[in-house]
Amino acid sequence: MKINSLDKLKKIRNEYQKNVCLRVNSTDSENSDIRIEILIGMATCGISAGAKDTFNAFQEELAKQGVNDAKVVSVGCIGYCHSEPTVQVNIRGREPVLYGNVKKEEVQEIVQKHIKGGNPIEALTLAINFERA
């Protein structure tokens, strides 16, 4: 499919908007069928700290606990190399939560308490908001 005009680009932008609206804003994403997004920092720094294991653990754990409106996304480096692997959890209607040092052992707790239970785990969080500075 060739994008041969600016209008076509804008059409594609609108079409895919629902896939990313949870990243920028938690409120206006009603028409998306994904309620929860889990962003995992998978640049060289994250991968060397074990982000691949974390990524796989999230997918397994979500399947095991029957969460099917969540999507696990591999993203680039967010810059907090001191706490890799970093995981950001965006849930519709809530402020995003950024976790640091999420090894695969921590995954079960995050899925159980935060994603299913709705209570972020204070001990693992790093400060962040939608301004995402």
Binding site: N19, R23, S74, G76, I78
Partner: peptide
């Protein structure tokens, strides 16, 4: 960086 999947142009 850290916001989108670098392997997905869309």
């Amino acid at each position: 960086c850290g916001l989108l999947n670098p392997e997905d142009i869309f």
